[in-house]
Design a protein around this nucleic acid. Structure first.
Lengths: 178, 178
DNA sequence: AGCGGATATTTGAAGCTTAAAATAATTTCC
DNA sequence: GGAAATTATTTTAAGCTTCAAATATCCGCT
């Protein structure tokens, strides 16, 4: 693991002036970043899969439903669909159906905004909030168990590095936009 | 929401010896781990969404198709569905349809294993391999750009911490199993 | 007032994904 | 050799997800 990284670093250090110039002819090696991405993805997939399974087994609820309720729990007065969709990073169309099913099951309320007749404001019902709180409590424990082998120091470092990664990715995605 | 966290943290620090004993009455605060998880998830979702978009815009291919081809590119002699499903961490049933569509489009070959008539071995066709290599090259650049703001040192640290996270999560998931 | 662009949401089509049940072939163990 | 357990895959039903097009409303501008 460490060996490859170091070789890479040496190469770059030995040819610093050529690195940029030669970019077109001999494309740079980005294998390390690729491995980093795959590892990030593996961690997420692993944890997400376990949470999904536990939510289903213990509460008979899907992860998307839980995620939506989690967003709404943070907004006692409700949120518009757009707002939720931005926070959850999912498409608007996706939410339409998800909300429909949760309204149907009595977990969500939905009303047209009083100030903007285009907007739908959704919020947790008492039932929805109660059920969410129960699930959230268990959820928090599951997550803690998953990260349990990391020391306080390591968690802090990881937190910081992920914050930086998030900014870096955002810059790459929205870099040239207003 | 923030207030509660701080109260909880103070409590734990003032009564370190009681922390475990009282776990049942005053459940531990796992908010940091939760924030860590959400940040991890955000990074993944952000990067994944961008990759998905670029693959669609530039190559008119979906991310799952690309991921499947990526697995097969690493196995010149092909792999069984089970093997692929394990590596991609998706269900078997999921692959059936995905493979079907890629065979249909001429990117994959599929044959029954000669040593085990239950197993299907799939592999990239020449077309599939050629198209994948082109896409993979671009893909590598996109990923590199996304992690571009991290120094070599930070990438290494992140890599190491994610390796540890992966192990930790695996232990939590499969801990008591053979 | 009303035109035109922007914003909020829904709809529709296609594809992805899962869990659980069904099918088929292999392996294990008497 | 054969029953039983295991493994590989497919099928089915339900739900999730995206993108793009359609609808409705709002906002800014003249």
């Amino acid at each position: 693991m460490a060996g490859q990284v170091q070789l890479q670093a040496q190469h770059l250090e030995l040819l610093p002036l050529d690195a940029e110039t030669k970019a077109h002819e001999t494309p740079e090696d980005h294998r390390d970043e690729l491995r980093l991405w795959l590892r990030l993805l593996t961690c997420t997939t692993l944890i997400e899969g376990e949470i999904r399974k536990k939510l289903r087994d213990e509460f008979d609820v899907t992860l998307p439903r839980f995620d939506l309720m989690a967003q709404l729990d943070k907004a006692p007065d409700g949120m518009t669909l757009s707002e939720v969709s931005k926070r959850m990073m999912v498409s608007n169309g996706n939410l339409t159906g998800l909300v429909e099913r949760l309204v149907e099951s009595g977990h969500l309320d939905r009303r047209t905004s009083e100030t903007d007749r285009r907007a739908q404001v959704i919020s947790l019902t008492d039932l929805g909030r109660a059920e969410f709180r129960t699930m959230a409590s268990a959820h928090e424990g599951w997550i803690a168990a998953m990260f349990g082998d990391l020391s306080r120091r390591e968690s802090d470092d990881l937190m910081r590095l992920l914050a930086k990664t998030k900014l870096s990715a955002r810059r790459a995605v929205h870099g040239s936009e207003a």
